[in-house]
Design a protein around this nucleic acid. Structure first.
Length: 434
RNA sequence: CGGGGCGUAGCGCAGCCUGGUAGCGCAUCUGCUUUGGGAGCAGAAGGUCGCCGGUUCGAAUCCGGCCGCCCCGACCA
């Protein structure tokens, strides 16, 4: 992509409404634009990030044996009246009346809808277990939306729902998602702390939140210092180890009952990026989601639901990874892998080297944003630092004369001089061994 | 929803107290110069001052109502 043609409306000054760093940077980098409180348009750069997060979440869901579906955003109120949540959910739910005066709502979550699908289409124990997911926009009419996409009213969420014959099966599904979530967040460049949580409005008996640490987090969490040690080592420990470590939200944390000695107890703020629930027959019983068992008996299915806040993650990753100059994207979600900077657009030699690098990178399947604008070097560096691509490939008249280009890592700021070919070799992934 | 604040050009702001032809910086457009960390000079374009009503010869400014947005608190991915 040539930056001269790319829709990247960057801002030098910070809009007054943005208070936290991810919101400020997303606005300044032209990733999003607010439409109304808590509701955003995603511009090209932001959409690329959103799609990359979506892709990783989807790959991990598929790998875990889940199957993707897509449910409507608008739901009939009757289903919610059946489950008993229509009155219970409160003003957070956006209620709509259609032209026939039928009560509808914009879905804040989909337990009722998926249960309705299940009860009509799955009848036998032989069809279990099932785990269905979707990636769909939700709407919750938050009293006070804030922090940009981190707490919007409209947000993109991956939600999935497991159906099992009995508790043991449901527990396996729950553990499977637990492990899947850890892998997913790890691929997104994040260390998530699984925290025992209050099931809240979804209801149920067993629930974990996945929190990533950030000063601007909305919840206070208490956790075992071992998490910090694991994080520092960059290790991904096994499921049982993680589950055995203490971590709790402030309302679940009882200092008197806390098993940790004081010197191992840490308090920090966290951003909740995922939440998993086991809730048994909370929806299947009132809504009649039953299958016929091997002996002809009716079995009410055991359910769980699992959410990942995809649009929130875009903000959360920035909160976890930025510096004074801008964002620092992990390679897995970066909108482009490489920013190619032509320091002297219009100079024959610089243009030639850049065009060649650009073509070769694209040919190798490396996503590259080429700053070919007629701008001063300072502007180009500032833009590239702001949008936080993992690599900057810098081509200037000085280097070109000596046959070198510069390769800068955004994360560390370290710069290496390379010949064009050797820079390419660094950026193009080695072909998989045959 | 309770408490606080703010709506003036795309963005950041001044002007409002004390009513009298709407201003600054950035961004945008044109020309020239400049070119390794958000350039300089010259010029240009861009505003029903959130909306409705009132007071007044005259309202961005005073008064009333409404709307929107932000911040602090209780809810959530």
């Amino acid at each position: 992509m040539h930056l001269s043609a790319y829709f990247l409306p960057t801002l030098k000054e910070t809009p007054a409404e943005a208070q936290i760093v991810s919101h400020r940077l997303m606005l300044r980098a032209g990733m999003i634009r607010q439409s109304s409180a808590g509701i955003y348009s995603w511009l090209p750069l932001g959409l690329r990030v959103l799609q990359n997060i979506t892709r990783i979440v989807r790959e991990e869901q598929d790998a875990a044996g889940c199957q993707e579906i897509l449910m409507p955003t608008i739901q009939p109120a009757e289903l919610w009246e059946e489950s008993g949540r229509y009155d219970g959910y409160g003003k957070e739910m956006l209620r709509i009346t259609d032209r026939h005066q039928r009560k509808m709502l914009y879905g804040p979550t989909n337990e009722e809808l998926i249960t309705d699908i299940f009860r009509h289409l799955i009848k036998s124990y032989r069809d279990l277990p099932k785990n269905l997911y979707q990636i769909q926009w939700k709407f919750r009419d938050e009293i006070r939306p804030r922090f940009g996409v981190m707490r919007g009213r409209e947000f993109l969420m991956k939600d999935n729902y497991s159906f099992d014959l009995d508790f043991d099966g449901a527990k396996r599904s729950y553990d499977n998602m637990f492990a899947t979530y850890l892998r997913t967040f790890s691929r997104l460049g994040l260390t998530a702390i699984p925290v025992r949580a209050d099931p809240g409005a979804i209801g149920g008996e067993l629930s974990h939140e996945f929190q990533i640490l950030a000063e601007t987090g909305e919840s206070e969490i208490f956790y075992d210092a071992k998490f910090d040690e694991l994080r520092a080592k960059g290790e991904q420990p096994d499921l049982e180890t993680l589950k055995s470590l203490y971590a709790a939200t402030d309302d679940e944390h009882d200092p008197a009952a806390c098993p940790l000695p004081d010197d191992r107890l840490r308090a920090a703020r966290g951003i909740e990026v995922g939440h998993i629930f086991y809730f048994g027959t909370k929806y299947s019983a009132p809504m009649g989601a039953v299958v016929t068992g091997p002996n002809g008996e009716s079995i009410t299915v055991e359910m769980g639901s699992y959410g990942i806040g995809i649009s929130r993650l875009a903000g959360a990753i920035i909160e976890a990874s930025h510096d004074d100059a801008g964002m620092i994207w992990p390679e897995s979600v970066a909108p482009f892998k490489v920013g190619l900077i032509n320091l002297r657009a219009g100079d024959k030699d610089c243009d030639g080297v850049c065009s060649d690098l650009y073509a070769k990178l694209r040919q190798a399947g490396v996503e590259v944003l080429y700053d070919d604008r007629d701008e001063r070097p300072g502007v180009k560096f500032a833009t590239m630092d702001l949008i936080g691509l993992p690599y900057q490939l810098i081509v200037g008249p000085r280097g070109v004369k000596q046959g070198v280009v510069e390769l800068k890592r955004r994360e560390s700021g370290e710069v290496e001089e390379h010949s064009a070919d050797s820079a390419l070799a660094r950026l193009v992934p080695a072909p998989a061994a045959a």
